[in-house]
Design a protein around this nucleic acid. Sequence first.
DNA 1: CTACATTTGTGAAGAATTTCACAAGCAGCC
DNA 2: GGCTGCTTGTGAAATTCTTCACAAATGTAG
Lengths: 202, 202
Amino acid sequence: MRRLSHYLRALEGFDRNGGGTVSSEELASKGHTTAAQVRKDLSHFGSFGKRGLGYGVSELVDRLRAILGVDRAWRVVLVGAGRIGSALFEYPDFKARGYDCVAVLDSDPHKIGAKWGNTTIRDTAELEAVVVREQIDLVVLAVPAVAAQEVTDRAVRAGIKGILNFAPVRLKVPAQVPVEDVNLVMELEALSFRITRGGASE
Amino acid sequence: MRRLSHYLRALEGFDRNGGGTVSSEELASKGHTTAAQVRKDLSHFGSFGKRGLGYGVSELVDRLRAILGVDRAWRVVLVGAGRIGSALFEYPDFKARGYDCVAVLDSDPHKIGAKWGNTTIRDTAELEAVVVREQIDLVVLAVPAVAAQEVTDRAVRAGIKGILNFAPVRLKVPAQVPVEDVNLVMELEALSFRITRGGASE
DNA sequence: CTACATTTGTGAAGAATTTCACAAGCAGCC
DNA sequence: GGCTGCTTGTGAAATTCTTCACAAATGTAG
Ligand SMILES: NC(=O)c1ccc[n+]([C@@H]2O[C@H](COP(=O)([O-])OP(=O)(O)OC[C@H]3O[C@@H](n4cnc5c(N)ncnc54)[C@H](O)[C@@H]3O)[C@@H](O)[C@H]2O)c1
Ligand SMILES: NC(=O)c1ccc[n+]([C@@H]2O[C@H](COP(=O)([O-])OP(=O)(O)OC[C@H]3O[C@@H](n4cnc5c(N)ncnc54)[C@H](O)[C@@H]3O)[C@@H](O)[C@H]2O)c1
């Protein structure tokens, strides 16, 4: 469920404002759903929250973190030190959420050996070794489309647990390895689709 | 429907390989759905495709382009010439799809006046003027979260038609203005969610 | 022209998701 | 303790999305 992430985001806003509890109504108003939806979603994972009061903010944050798996550190390798790769590498929110970019790989001899902060860009040839030695959980794939499948296959064989893919191709992976695709062109197409047909309907 | 974009992507692969027609079966195998789904989706917009044969590739491409609104050029302004902004600006697939980044704005005096290719970074203060004068359709928002709502409000007032938002906030907009959010942290959370619960289930 | 092999378009069945509605639980107050 | 005012948790209804199944169309081959 994608909405759980939204709830977590919204809750963190409340947390800072000292509030002790939130009602499903309040949670729904952020994160654009209904109160009933919020309750259904949460009840699906257990029943926290006190009747008559609402949900304890910090308790619910902890629960959601556990459900989403953000209550631990994830070790990430970035493959492809290009434009998108560098933007992602420096994005502070990843680290803040426990996604630790412990290695950066590229195949371009001009880039290998360069330093980004304290991190040295290494050769993609080391992928398998890095995954195993550094106990990598996730790959962020920011290589050109033609290279994406090959890198994927090698990462999967090395025992990676999941892939965030920016290349506009559908990766073939075994069913146990989840892939999330980010395709910016598709987002723009969704926009123009919604504009050309009148319906807004977020 | 997000799947239409996938169909278009898949079709373009076929197009180059000279093929005259595709069956719903073939389209389904790429883009991970079923043949029935493909037919339902397409029939919802009219009935092209010949029984016994399949869909004419180039005709279907044209139809999908029209449905998605990619059969025209979209004029885009990029607001926020930071790390993500620069990656997006240079991303060739946007232009290839008809999304033309005709202006780049930023509020940082050190960046204003710099050139990216032939494009000069201008002051965000000019936003309204640019939207009107350059007939901008879409805003790509790549500014820090705190600035996002303000830029949005101004763009909306200036008559923007849609927003692609990279800032991790839920923008308040009138119902006629569609917003697509890109939130990379949420993608990673979706990954770790799927990993921690066993289910792959793309 | 007729039989045949395909593949679409679509109503109907089935599944999944969302909304409704309300009993049950909790805190505060008298 | 016994009301009162809220808010959760959750079956049941409603809605939306997906799959099934098959008649209707189209090209081909004999
Ligand atoms: N730039 C964007 O805004 C953007 C947006 C969405 C998606 N993407 C996608 O992200 C990918 C990268 O885009 P980019 O703009 O950063 O491109 P880029 O050319 O700037 O960077 C690609 C990097 O990958 C490296 N590389 C190539 N083959 C490799 C391999 N086999 N192993 C390791 N590294 C390899 C290259 O040396 C280069 O450094 C592309 O698939 C692109 O379609 C980019
Ligand atoms: N870097 C990433 O990989 C990444 C990924 C996802 C989302 N984001 C989001 O994208 C946004 C930008 O991230 P970034 O990493 O590019 O940050 P950045 O700091 O590199 O760039 C932000 C740019 O916006 C400019 N800016 C600030 N206020 C402005 C205003 N009012 N008008 C116009 N320009 C203004 C700044 O001068 C700067 O150039 C943030 O909201 C961030 O959360 C970034």
